[in-house]
Design a protein around this nucleic acid. Structure first.
Lengths: 386, 386
DNA sequence: CTGAAAGCGCTTACAG
DNA sequence: CTGAAAGCGCTTACAG
């Protein structure tokens, strides 16, 4: 329907999109309404008394210099006065550069307070800026009942690619992604447990979690610890499993016994670390060190044990994972594994770009980019007492 | 230039957009190149052997059900195979709902690690979700030398409104904003010192900083403190000035003397709090309490003083501002001022919507929404020693 | 410096 | 269930 450039039109008014039941077959006028139509460049240019081309030029920073200063000024002033806003969609449509990359983040749990995601995002924005690429961070919570691709599309309107960092993907979602018409990249910890990343057509990046788990455990062993407990995150998480595998491998390689009654799965929070102190405390008759699944847990555990009079590292060594901000601020400063934030961030942005370029070609890119984390030795680990 | 629906074209190759110097006036063929043209719906529909209308329907979740399952399937499969992606700009252009709101965040200093912004953003995403509105967080660093509106436009392509949370705005920027063709809202702490928000046409939201400064100071006075020092943020910040005014007002109202040699301006960081302990320590002969400008500083100060054997709150009371995550986790837990995060977040999103609706009307909206913070008394404040 | 007009890549009412 | 065609609101090469 072409409404041309009329400003005020007479319209049939429908209620909630349908005519009321009593409406006769031949529609009648219900009201005369002032059409609430978005001011567009055509209407605006008429008011301004210039062509649309001139308006477009005057209002676009890249081309404003072409317009005679006086005219430009008049157009800009009128635009300000009438609140005329060039339509963002139209601008994107005519643009040449790649649309923004969407970073999809979990919506719950105040996700922006998570350092893990905060660091990753900072890195991504940095990596993108180097490529003159804009990145948009978007809160996104998949509804497992509804169509996944549809949700993705709705949340990322205006974006040209997706870096997915939200809730764990299911196998069904992953298969469906082949049908998503957008570059899509995710992090290994978003994959379901059963899936081997190299079987996927979705590019994946992440940390060598197992290596991290191995390094931190070996560090404790080298300090002389024999009896090491393990406090980790939720058992259904991939990264948790991998870190534990690293722990077990290091123990096995050095002839230590992994006692399943010394291995625990709790939330990845400070509070659950504090709570875990209750049942880890009695273990300290034998146990001299605890490998934790992340920094929050580790710091919580240290706090909980301190409350019971157990000091770290004198009576117990504790390690974290992530190298969060408070890992170094804490007293004693936490021995931990530093995530390869920058490398991960850079890889993800690069992958999106590569997918973007491959657009229209028949190539599926399956890629797995895992980066090696780093052991940071600080003050919470020492040789065992006695 | 209409390239029609050709797939492979013969093109003249220019180097860096200009023909090399030796190019004769009559252009010659340099290479035969495969044109890297984005696959569009027309070309795609030809390959699929259906009309563009059917392709559009099959690929759009909202309309896919209209298409015969068999056809739909075939189209979707081909799209996956050819990596056909409907152009995001075109989609936005045809859409009806409001384009995403852009939240502009400082790009430096790993801004996502700042709890202040993290909490604000979480709140905004929440408030937006309630209104079925999408929010995009974007790293943005204004270049004070270049045209501000131009930078805004470039960074927010595809967005329909801006919540500005980046570096302090200058008077010039604020004036220029009248010419920005988009709803724009900012936070009071982004305003320059000299400006009275009620003089602006830009809607502003924020915290009653002065009230916060007053509350926390009065709390110390009520505990019986006479000699109170003040460690605050950078003197050129509006929120820092306002908090200090609150401090001074409370002191004056209760007949306390504000000694300028007991008032300090440092960075709003943990590290600067630690460092400040060096010169605050000698003051503790008389001073029994320190009002800090934010939580990071306060926690750093407590750490710095602890290193010198001064325990809090036994020998000195310390207060923060913000109620960051570690304010409650810290031992002793920090007495502080809680920001009205949710109210601020909600107000900002609401303002953008109102501006959006007013679009095309001649009304300027000038609005100042300040919310009252809350005093949270914890363990770092106690009656003065002796 | 300005304007007429083609074009960007979709969506959707309308007519089969 | 499908197609032809108008339209969304801009930008930009081309021709003054």
């Amino acid at each position: 329907m072409n409404r041309g450039s009329c400003e005020v039109c007479v319209f049939l008014t429908k209620e909630n999109g349908v005519f009321p039941d009593e409406t006769p077959l031949v529609p009648v006028l219900h009201h005369v309404a002032v059409m609430k139509k978005r001011l567009n460049i055509v209407t605006f240019s008429e008011k301004a008394g210039v062509s649309v081309a001139t308006v477009s030029r005057a209002l676009n920073p890249k081309t404003a210099h072409i317009v005679k200063p006086e005219t430009r000024r008049r157009i800009q002033d009128l635009a300000a006065q009438l609140h005329f806003t060039p339509h963002p969609g139209a601008r994107i449509l005519r643009g040449t550069s790649m649309a923004p990359i969407a970073i999809l983040l979990r919506n719950k749990d105040k996700i922006f307070l998570s350092e893990y995601y905060a660091r990753l995002m900072s890195g991504m924005m940095h990596a993108a800026a180097e490529r003159k690429q804009v990145v948009h961070a978007i809160a996104f919570q998949p509804d497992y009942e509804e169509d996944f691709n549809e949700q993705l599309t709705a949340a990322t309107v205006g974006c040209g690619g997706i870096i997915y960092l939200s809730d764990t993907l299911t196998a069904r979602m992953l298969i469906g992604l082949e049908r998503l018409h957008q570059p899509f990249v995710t992090i290994s910890s978003c994959l379901p447990m059963g899936v081997d990343p190299s079987d996927l057509t979705v590019p994946v990046f992440g940390t060598e979690e197992k290596t991290g788990g191995y390094m931190v455990t070996e560090h404790l062993i080298e300090l002389g610890h024999q009896h090491i407990a393990h406090l980790n995150g939720p058992a259904n998480r991939r990264d948790v499993r991998d870190r534990r595998e690293g722990f077990e491998a290091a123990m096995a390689d050095h002839q230590r016994v992994v006692r399943s009654d010394w291995c625990f799965n709790e939330e990845f929070t400070f509070e659950s670390g504090v709570a875990a102190a209750d049942y880890i405390f009695p273990l300290l008759e034998k146990v001299t060190a605890v490998v934790c699944g992340n920094d929050e847990q580790a710091l919580g555990l240290i706090r909980g044990l301190a409350t019971k009079g157990v000091s770290c590292p004198e009576r117990v060594s504790v390690t974290g994972f992530d190298d969060a901000l408070w890992a170094s601020r804490h007293s004693p400063a936490l021995t931990t594994i530093r995530q390869p934030w920058l490398k991960m961030a850079d890889a993800s942005v690069r992958m999106i770009h590569e997918l973007h370029l491959k657009d229209g070609m028949k190539k599926n890119s399956r890629e797995l980019n895992l980066f090696t984390p780093e052991l940071i030795v600080r003050e919470t680990t020492a040789a065992p007492r006695g």
